[in-house]
Amino acid sequence: MNDHQALELIAGLVPPGSHVLDLGCGSGEVLAYLRDQRQCTGYGIEIDDANVLACEQRGVNVIQLNLEEGLAIFGDQSFDVVLQLTPCSTCATPSAC
């Protein structure tokens, strides 16, 4: 399965129009795809400077925080779907995630 097929597979699991939180959203590829192909809204959490820039270049909403702080900034029941597609390596204390 190539990256694009993986993207389509994941996106297929997200109901159209969902409000999505993508934890560790990387360059924002998934969020951009969901926005463009499935009319989704939402935010990505990302700590890495280069990825934050890539998200901004894609016009994807990105919040530059680590995952713990990123999760804390949202109220309960804020999203229809929460994605976490990368290993939780950026957390200071992975158990908290």
């Binding site: 409000h19 998200c55 901004e56 990105v62 919040i63 530059q64 925080l65």
Partner: peptide, 8 residues
């Protein structure tokens, strides 16, 4: 639920 990006 506004569009927002945040860079720290």
């Amino acid at each position: 639920r506004l569009d927002v990006s945040y860079a720290e």
